[in-house]
Design a binder for these strands. Structure first.
Length: 262
DNA sequence: AAAACGCCCAACCGCCATTGC
DNA sequence: GGCAATGGCGGTTGGGCGTTT
């Protein structure tokens, strides 16, 4: 069941953008804002597919983008977030102001993977390379790797899929909003289901040595609830908002401020 | 100096989720 | 409820550029 192409490829440019195309796109968005990407190319006089325009704007032309090398702090943050979120580049990008998912993805593939490998850590699983077999039941070797990376927060396994849905359709995209509202603003899907989301994340943020018998029992349980960051407040749809570090052991973290990192 | 090689990153592609009719 | 349109995301590709031989 193939889908129709997003545009008439016969009449669209491909490949690198020219300066003139960039200027047209920027001028149009400045005048009209980010609107319907489908119709934007025609309205802006561009022979480009709408998706291509969106990508160009998001990844290159947006005025709030931070260019230049990643700092060591950003490096470590990406590593830690990847440990929590897996290849959810848009979610990771949501935690790094001025960075795009594409940029982070590229940076991961070109730099961080090698960096982790040089540390003897599998970049995909965040486990120590070759140590998984030796791990005793319930004592995952990657916790050791996680501890090497950072004293907190590496999950037992990256979540296969975060149950993320837009909490409310009300706010349309604005500035970075399209991305951040979809990414960090999502997660409200839980609002429609009684099923607690956070336990699904399987966040294992133990710091000390885990209890030998059960993987989920920790002497000093500690976890980050991303629900808050994802836009859930006051107990919406989250089993962990009970969240006093109580029986469930979930800590409840404030959303990050600008320039503040996990 | 030139060819070969490797790296980096912008852009494309295909799929999935959401929205509107 | 079903379908099509659209937006968004993650994986992959390929051209440009710097480095090595």
């Amino acid at each position: 069941m193939g889908r129709s192409p997003c545009c008439e490829k016969a009449h669209t440019n491909k490949g690198a953008w020219t300066k003139e195309e960039d200027e047209r796109l920027v001028a149009y968005i400045r005048a009209h804002g980010e609107g319907c990407w489908r119709s934007l190319p025609k309205a802006a006089g561009l022979l480009r597919c709408g998706k291509s325009c969106r990508l160009r704007w998001m990844n290159y032309l947006r005025p709030d983008l931070k260019r230049g090398n990643f700092t060591d702090e950003e490096d470590e943050l990406i590593i830690r977030l990847h440990g929590i979120l897996g290849n959810k580049w848009s979610l990771i990008a949501g935690q790094l102001p001025g960075r795009t998912d594409n940029e982070i993805k590229n940076y991961w593939n070109t730099h961080i993977k090698r960096k982790l490998l040089s540390r003897g850590i599998d970049p995909q699983t965040h486990r120590l390379l070759g140590a998984a077999d030796a791990a005793a039941p319930g004592v995952a070797a990657h916790r050791v790797a996680a501890a090497l990376l950072h004293p907190m927060a590496i999950p037992a396994t990256p979540p296969a899929k975060l149950a993320v849905k837009k909490p409310a359709p009300a706010e349309s995209s604005s500035d970075d909003g399209g991305r951040s509202s979809t990414s960090s603003g999502s997660g409200g899907g839980g609002a429609s289901t009684a099923e607690p989301r956070c336990p699904d994340l399987n966040l294992d943020l133990s710091v000390g040595p885990p209890a030998a018998d059960t993987p989920t029992s920790h002497s000093q349980p500690r976890a980050v609830c991303l629900c808050y960051r994802l836009g859930l407040h006051a107990g919406e749809a989250c089993g962990c908002q009970a969240a006093k570090p109580g029986p469930q052991g979930f800590g409840y973290f404030r959303p990050l401020e600008q320039g503040q990192y996990i």
